[in-house]
């Protein structure tokens, strides 16, 4: 019995190495959805977080607390909200994108946004305390300050992006609700794992899980390499 289990756990890795097209499609979709969601969130969250780090206004502390709290948004709740929004009976139903990868990207982007924004705010605020006098004395316009700080904090911000990506790649709650886990269309690693678990094929589910963890480690290693290389060059 234990022997066959081990063999079955290896079978997901065999499938991967053997180039099983269905598994590759799932891995590919997982990467595309989570990377696109991280990118989409980052485009808004980086400037938002930076601006929050730089400006002082009444109620700022409240915004920061809410933003930090939102790092722990329950994926199922986000999924449900996006589901109701995108449902044909919902306000954005006319888009017709429920149960598509686009919906999954949107939902994950929402999940990832607070993580990137909150970490960006923290990072940029730290850099700002170092740069403030210099940039003020150089009379740098506010928008350029934001851009400058984001650029100069770029290596630290990689960590924020990775945290966001990790959250997106690892979560199942939103994508299963808004994606529907449709075979060959919206099935990603995490929903495939949930499905195999419900079919009772625990070894295969575990094998898929190992593949997913491997992928996440690879992405992180890649980002780490980029960071080291960039830091070595930019000082």
């Amino acid at each position: 019995m234990p022997k066959t289990r081990v063999q079955n756990s290896m079978s997901a890795i065999d499938l991967l190495l053997g180039g099983d097209p269905a598994l590759y499609a799932i891995v590919r979709l997982s990467l595309i959805v989570s990377l696109a969601a991280t990118a989409l969130a980052a485009i808004v969250a980086l400037p938002f977080g930076a601006m929050l780090g730089l400006t002082r206004f009444p109620g700022r502390a409240g915004v920061i607390v809410v933003l930090n709290a939102c790092m722990g948004l329950p994926p199922v709740v986000v999924g449900l909200a996006i589901y109701l929004l995108l449902s044909r009976s919902g306000p954005l139903g006319f888009l017709g994108i429920l149960f598509t990868p686009q919906a999954m990207i949107l939902a994950q982007a929402l999940l990832v946004f607070p993580i990137i924004a909150a970490l960006t705010r923290q990072t940029v605020e730290d850099v700002w305390s170092e740069y403030r006098d210099e940039l003020m004395a150089l009379r740098v316009a506010p928008f350029r300050r934001v851009a400058t700080l984001l650029w100069d904090a770029r290596f630290s911000l990689i960590t924020a992006l990775l945290a966001g990506f990790g959250r997106a790649a690892a979560e199942v709650g939103t994508v299963i609700i808004v994606g529907g886990n449709i075979d060959g269309f919206t099935r990603v690693m995490t929903t495939a794992i949930a499905l195999e678990t419900s079919k009772g094929d625990l070894p295969l589910a575990l094998g898929l899980g190992l593949v997913l963890i491997g992928l996440i480690i690879m992405i992180n290693a890649l980002a780490w390499g980029v960071r080291r290389f960039g830091e070595a060059r930019a000082g």
Partner: peptide, 11 residues
């Protein structure tokens, strides 16, 4: 680009 081309390509 990653967003605009990547996602619809899957769909």
């Amino acid at each position: 680009a990653a967003l605009l081309f990547g996602a619809p390509a899957m769909a």
